[in-house]
């Protein structure tokens, strides 16, 4: 009995952490564009980058209940850092990526002290305000950031010193996908660790967690910093693969977009954000290709439609449907066991 209670939660976590066949299928499917849509690899690379960014938001919003309307701040810090490193003569992508992650992580850690103290609307407005402040600061510091015109002169060296970034986006997609996968595996581990469990506790009831001896604030600071690092990596990927950074990397629009992608896919499920990013980016590309002027109308309808019929996002809706099917299947055979 006692051994069971001790090993119980660990066993649950371990069971959750096991890789499922469907997950492996998912990741194999991400390779399909190479074969089936080689003309769309540039888009695919930006989808992967968006997915990484959404994953970062999912860690704080979906798993820890920290809502943010200013998450682009960390994306932008990463993007500008990677860009600046390159402009100042060091265009090696992998080390640039690491430096960018560290920079956005530092900014995340510093701001996390403020973030951890607030919730709800106050938190939304504080993240929004901090994001807008940073964007204005970047506009003012045009000697450093290039201001409105964007940072000029970014040049990314070939990957591993050998593989050039081509016009077709082969390198860009491979690179972005690899980083996404590695970060995803790490995020998955975090979620299925006791720390991850504590985060969900904070999401469900932030006031009760300290009562059972969990330090809410320090947990929030930790996950917020981790999320900031990931957002920074996404930003760095974008500036390295496109060799451009401008103020909109820090902007409200990007913060709002990533929030929309996450809710669309389903927050609090690792794959929800990824699905949301794919659906939103592909839909946007297709709608705007078909109707460059009024595509907002269709994307708006898409959002309304999804939220009307799948209030927990696409993945949430699918999971609900699957559960219903399974429950129906369970009911049908007569119960023989005692």
């Amino acid at each position: 009995m006692t051994t069971q209670t001790i090993s119980g939660p660990h066993a649950v976590l371990q069971a959750q952490a096991r890789w499922r066949a469907a997950e492996i299928a998912f990741w194999l499917a991400t390779l399909l564009p190479f074969v089936l849509a080689p003309d769309y690899l540039v888009l695919a690379s930006q989808v992967a980058i968006a997915a990484l960014f959404v994953l970062s938001l999912d860690l704080i919003l979906g798993f820890s209940g920290i809502i943010s309307l200013g998450h682009a701040a960390y994306f932008g810090v990463g993007a500008y850092t990677a860009g600046l490193v390159s402009v100042h003569g060091w265009g090696e992508p992998l080390s640039g990526l690491v430096i960018a992650g560290i920079a956005s992580g530092i900014w995340g850690y510093v701001t996390s002290f403020i973030i951890a103290r607030f919730r709800h609307l106050a938190l939304i407005m504080i993240t929004l305000g901090l994001g807008l402040l940073l964007q204005e600061a970047a506009n003012a510091a045009s000697w450093l950031t290039g201001g409105f015109d964007g940072l000029q002169g970014i040049h990314t060296w070939p990957l591993f010193g050998k593989i050039d970034f081509d016009l077709y986006g082969y390198t860009a997609y491979s690179y972005a996908l690899a980083v996404l996968f590695v970060v995803f595996v790490a995020a998955r581990r975090i979620i299925h660790s006791p720390f991850g469990l504590a985060l969900r506790g904070i999401r469900e009831n932030g006031a009760r967690m300290p009562a059972i001896g969990a330090s809410t604030h320090s947990h929030i600071r930790t996950i917020y910093t981790i999320a900031a690092v990931i957002a920074g990596l996404a930003g760095a990927l974008l500036s390295q693969t496109t060799e451009t950074v401008s103020l909109e990397a820090l902007g409200f629009q990007r913060s709002a977009d990533v929030l929309v992608m996450l809710i669309l896919g389903g927050a609090g499920r690792l794959y929800g954000g990824l699905i949301g990013a794919v659906v939103y980016m592909v839909a946007r590309d297709q709608f705007s290709g078909l109707n460059p002027q009024f595509w907002y109308f269709w994307i708006g309808l898409l959002l309304i439609g999804v939220v009307m019929f799948l209030p927990n996002g696409i993945l949430g809706g699918l999971a609900f449907a699957a559960e219903r099917l399974k429950a129906a299947a369970r009911k049908r055979p007569p119960v023989s066991a005692p």
Binding site: A25, F26, Y271, I314, A322
Partner: peptide, 8 residues
């Protein structure tokens, strides 16, 4: 499983 498979 089903869900993620579909999604993938």
């Amino acid at each position: 499983k089903v869900v993620i498979g579909c999604a993938g």
